[in-house]
Design a protein around this nucleic acid. Sequence first.
DNA 1: CGGATTCTTGAAGTCGCTCAACGAACGTGG
DNA 2: CCACGTTCGTTGAGCGACTTCAAGAATCCG
Lengths: 271, 271
Amino acid sequence: MSATTIALKPANTAVPFPAASNNKCSGCSFRQLCLPVGLSDSEVGRLDQIIARRRRVFKDEPLYRAEQPFHSLYAVHFGHFKTAQVNLRGNQQITGFQMAGDLLGMDAIGSGRHSCTAVALDDAEVCEIPYARLTDLFSQVPALLQHFHRIMSHEITREQNVMLFLSNMRAEQRFALFLLNLSSRYAARGYAASCFQLRMSREDIGDYLGLTIESISRLLSRFRREGWVKVENREVSLLDRAALEALASGAAGDAEERAAALAQRPQLKAA
Amino acid sequence: MSATTIALKPANTAVPFPAASNNKCSGCSFRQLCLPVGLSDSEVGRLDQIIARRRRVFKDEPLYRAEQPFHSLYAVHFGHFKTAQVNLRGNQQITGFQMAGDLLGMDAIGSGRHSCTAVALDDAEVCEIPYARLTDLFSQVPALLQHFHRIMSHEITREQNVMLFLSNMRAEQRFALFLLNLSSRYAARGYAASCFQLRMSREDIGDYLGLTIESISRLLSRFRREGWVKVENREVSLLDRAALEALASGAAGDAEERAAALAQRPQLKAA
DNA sequence: CGGATTCTTGAAGTCGCTCAACGAACGTGG
DNA sequence: CCACGTTCGTTGAGCGACTTCAAGAATCCG
């Protein structure tokens, strides 16, 4: 729970970035996940014009810090981020992990200052969207405004779901949900759903799920022992999605319900 | 944590409502807390025109339910609400308590369906704001759009703060924060900051703070024993705001820090 | 007044945390 | 390339905060 991972590390300038792309939404492979959803080609063109630039953020570098004045939203082009709040005691609460197509910075609109710190989990690139210019565009492109509202609303429901598991789910249930959530997000981006790299440390996972690093480690070991996942360092393979889903849907911690859930998958022994 | 409080109870039709007001934002005493913030008189007039109607919701009645199709946002005119999600096991997570001037339903914009159930905690009245008409108005009243974005953004940061205490705060710290938060919200509305009615049950508080009803009861008893609050059923008086703030800011659970915090208030004995 | 609901209090249990030690992986410099 | 230090991850033992279970008291409301 320490806040040290927020600290700015010297950038690793030797990292090879993917070849620069054309800097346009129109050519972006995540167009269907990001701000341009539902826009016509000409409308996307107008959005292209206000994207200030693509900005590179190296692993462990902050994209922005809590309290900094807000000017722009950021769309993740590639790479991964975590957003974290740090309380007075130095504990960090990670409010989310963002990947390609996700939008960062919406929590700053209300106050004009960022309420959390966004740190790159690997070498990343974001599209900087000046908020003032975006609002100008809203009046000209109603579909963009509609979709922007949907994105903010989804952020609200996403956080409600986090509240749900933070408040009344068991550790194993939280962790199963975490893995399945990552899986579905990678699937939505065209990546393998059952085999992926954890871009974040065990500590980050713990700070997201409201658990300690030791608990995460133990859960990972147990899931591996049960044959539900394969784990090699930060590479995770989901071997038994049904078992994880049974856990995630609430069979955990209740012997009867778990037995019932497992009974529907006769090929598996009870945990 | 049971979901039974969500159940529809027969309305108490004998409750005397306050005299009907003029149904206009322009005459509303919560104008400075609600959607019309920052609008000119003529702009407020245009907002008035799209308010469908004032709708009365009796105690324990739902304003809307999870999964219902979304058409309107609702501004609380008077009364109180809770918004709750129910998971598969029947546990409810209360995502927030709303009072006069607060806006309800923003989480439904993304999916077109309400993601939670909103239930009146006392006899209440809301202003129904058809979302389609509101979006029409955005193009004509840019200040309204700006403020709407601020409201949604604030909802995101509010939920982040809930995540923060759900994840890594002690029970007493959560509860102190809860009381102080209610206090400041009543103060912002011109009510007494240190003496108010808890509109929600102990169970609701627990389901909001991620604690059991028993824990809430014990905390309330302890706070009373320590002389920090006065409690008579649902009437609460904050007697020692400084003590509660020390607790809320993290002095709790850490003897050294708590001693340090208390040392700054020499009139008080250590807990 | 009486039944139902809500709240309070106590005793026992448990899940996840704290503390501690060790092992593995990484990357930095020799 | 290896030695080394540092960070990160794993595992165990014991503990503590909150829950669970249970019973009784207070309150609400017809």
